[in-house]
Write a protein that binds this DNA or RNA. Structure first.
Lengths: 219, 219
DNA sequence: ATTTATTTTTAGACCCATCTAAATTTTTAT
DNA sequence: ATAAAAATTTAGATGGGTCTAAAAATAAAT
């Protein structure tokens, strides 16, 4: 139906618009897709012709409902495949992204739904990101950054901002994973670093760089 | 590494050469790939430049060792994914082919091997076709056509010649599946049709058209 | 408000895979 | 052995996606 490239553009634009609707510039799209601005302009025109987005020269783009649906469906497939790779094939959460980037373009609604059922209709992927439903709804998660938590607060590790393998591997190394119970002991004003308690016996020092990339749920 | 199209050409040429090395003509390739002879010539030149096959104008092609490896690897992935779809996602054997045609191009050796392990290293796919090993070996199965069996002979249904959904659905309808024990009762010289016993209580009449598309193992 | 810098778009080119129509080679038939 | 038929290849064109270099529009700075 739609090419890999078209789906990737729609997904990139969708993700940028989730973060901040003002940030969907030609250059921003080019950067996340690792391509050139000229190529982005070309493709945007094509997607506009197909009514997948609205485009005004020099003004920017917004996805149409149809375009948003395709993007969300692609995200859904990506996250379901990531879950499959992690839960069933025992890939680490730092290893699933690249393979899911390929699998997300497999075109079969019945496959996607059967995969969903096979996995037990998971609500979140291995990075804690919500998986859109069949009908394209996506739960808005009200998480906070660990660096914004207050001392004495007990929180549950529930997601990441940085999805890069190096960051995820760092979390592996310090034994923080989805679901970890974290108690904030102290915050250092000077550098923004924090002290946390993971388990009764394990106290940890986290740099601000790390703490601001961890999403937590208050409980 | 290699494009979908290149992999599809290599696979098509490989399959033709398995059947009969003489049958790898430009037109034959065009037919199985549902494209035009001119396109085949173009692609053959490209694959030849990449040393994936040997090509002499007007004389035909033969895969190089490298080309054969890519083809076999593609077949391996196709059959593993078909097995996954059938065994884990409960797709019928008549429904798996088209989706596997997409999945076979997913590029990750570790994924393929983990999938293989997850499925319990199956030796055959849902149609009874052998699954190549990691190292590219493929078991040559010595099956015979049901239409060539002799009266009184007991055989096990082990594969199909025709892989089309209509044929597979017909077998579903008459309750013949992989592993079915079949006893040949009688052969009709006139039209080549046969009488078989499936279960003590079920006698069946099969046209030659059906019998010549069923592969069986003698036991 | 005019100049400078940045962003975006256009123009023109390239590679991939495909096509049609025409030319060439091989095969078949008489 | 030569003509007719069939198969194969070439030539030239198209569409998808990308690029560089140059032009146009917008934003920022003084």
């Amino acid at each position: 139906m739609y090419s890999f490239t078209e789906e990737n553009y729609l997904k990139a634009i969708y993700k940028l618009s989730e973060r901040e609707p003002e940030s969907i510039t030609t250059n921003a799209i080019a950067e996340v897709l690792e391509t050139k601005a000229a190529s982005v302009t070309d493709m945007i025109k094509k997607l506009s012709d197909k009514k997948l987005l609205k485009y005004e020269k020099y003004k920017g783009v917004t996805l149409t409902e149809k375009g948003r649906m395709i993007a969300v469906e692609t995200v859904r497939k990506h996250r379901l495949w990531e879950t499959f790779l992690h839960e069933k094939l025992e890939f680490g959460w730092d290893e699933v992204h690249d393979i899911a980037e390929q699998l997300e373009h497999i075109n079969s609604e019945v496959l996607t739904n059967k995969l969903d059922d096979f996995l037990g209709n998971p609500s979140h992927d291995p990075h804690g990101d919500p998986i859109p439903t069949r009908s394209g709804e996506i739960k808005k998660s009200n998480l906070m950054l660990l660096c914004d938590a207050k001392p004495k607060q007990k929180v549950v590790m529930s997601g990441v901002v940085d999805h890069s393998p190096p960051f995820l591997q760092h979390l592996n190394k310090i034994s923080i994973s989805l679901g970890s119970l974290i108690e904030l002991l102290d915050k250092n004003e000077y550098d923004g670093s924090i002290e946390i308690k993971l388990h009764p016996s394990s106290h940890l020092h986290l740099s601000k760089e790390v703490a601001k990339n961890i999403l937590v749920k208050i409980r």
